[in-house]
């Protein structure tokens, strides 16, 4: 921290102002707007104040619960991503030959736009698409089905795509932390005869805990707030509304069903859930890792 003279107290505010202005335009104004709109029924020019009716209708709405449950289903990806991240991070940490290239290659799916990824996998997962053809080639022909076109598999197919895309990021993140672990500790353990599993369990994982918890929250947030592109491009919420998720539903309410009041109400609900999650993480970091600097 720099110590600042009394008369220069305004300086940090000046430096913050451009960013603050932009964030106010893009975040503050819309959020307040959405908050207000959620208490109205809006149709064309007409705005009728309806109190918490939008919220009540939302809570009785089947599609809302379906969306919420689907979002929760997507949480399954989180442990999968974390485990994959840890496994590969530890593997690469051990400097197996070529690890630098592997790290980069694992990141390639992450570089793709979600929309582009969705389109590619839409083609691959079709009934006559690459995946089914490969299944047949390796003798699993009985598993061939329209992965995105039936209610029993659509959600899981999307989950698989998300895992495919996000995996490299977790690996890279955890690996970066591992690389900054004090080498002497690991060396000492090795000299004591500890095998890779013990080292991982006793040294690497504890060291990586903060990063893993950060990644955990990041993934949870992704599963709540950033699924729209996947759903829009691969299934548009179908089949039979089985892949509806909350941020997609907000879009549909605004664009297809033209009900801005409800769209705003759902947005408010989603914001509340997300902030609770982030709040919990912050609290966890405070109480579980009191020594971590803010």
């Amino acid at each position: 921290m720099i110590r600042v003279r009394k008369d220069k107290k305004r300086v940090p505010y000046m430096f913050m102002s451009p960013a603050l202005i932009m964030i106010s335009i893009v975040f503050l104004y819309p959020i307040i707007s959405v908050l207000i709109d959620s208490f109205f029924q809006i149709s064309g020019q007409k705005r009728t104040y309806t109190g918490i009716q939008n919220f009540r209708v939302l809570l009785e709405n089947d599609l809302f619960w379906k969306s919420l449950i689907n979002n929760m289903k997507f949480f399954i990806c989180v442990p999968i991503l974390i485990i994959l991240g840890i496994v590969f991070a530890v593997l690469l940490y051990n400097r197996i030959p070529g690890w630098k290239i592997y790290r980069v290659l694992l990141l390639v799916p992450y570089i793709f736009s979600i929309a582009v990824t969705g389109i590619i996998f839409d083609c691959i997962l079709r009934e006559n698409g690459l995946f089914n053809i490969l299944l047949e080639k390796i003798g699993l022909g009985h598993l061939v089905q329209p992965w995105l076109g039936q209610t029993s598999t659509a959600v899981y197919a999307i989950m698989a795509v998300i895992v495919w895309k996000e995996m490299g990021f977790g690996t890279m993140l955890i690996l970066a932390r591992l690389l900054s672990v004090d080498e002497s500790m690991v060396e000492a353990a090795r000299l004591d005869g500890a095998g890779i599993f013990t080292i991982t369990r006793k040294i690497l994982l504890p060291e990586a805990k903060p990063v893993i918890s950060f990644y955990f929250v990041l993934c949870m947030i992704n599963m709540l707030s950033w699924l729209f592109n996947y759903v829009y491009v691969m299934t548009k919420g179908g089949p039979v509304n089985s892949t509806y998720v909350m941020d997609f539903y907000i879009y549909q309410l605004g664009v297809k069903f033209v009900n801005y009041g409800m769209a705003s109400a759902l947005a408010v609900v989603l914001l509340i859930i997300t902030f609770l999650l982030v709040g919990v993480q912050a609290a966890m970091q405070h109480y579980v890792f009191p020594d971590e600097e803010d």
Partner: peptide, 20 residues
């Protein structure tokens, strides 16, 4: 109503084509 059509009919047709 547009909601009945785009939310209801669409899903209903898909339901029927999926075996309901």
């Amino acid at each position: 109503p547009s909601m009945v059509h785009s939310q209801g009919n669409y899903a209903a047709a898909q339901m029927v084509l999926s075996g309901s």
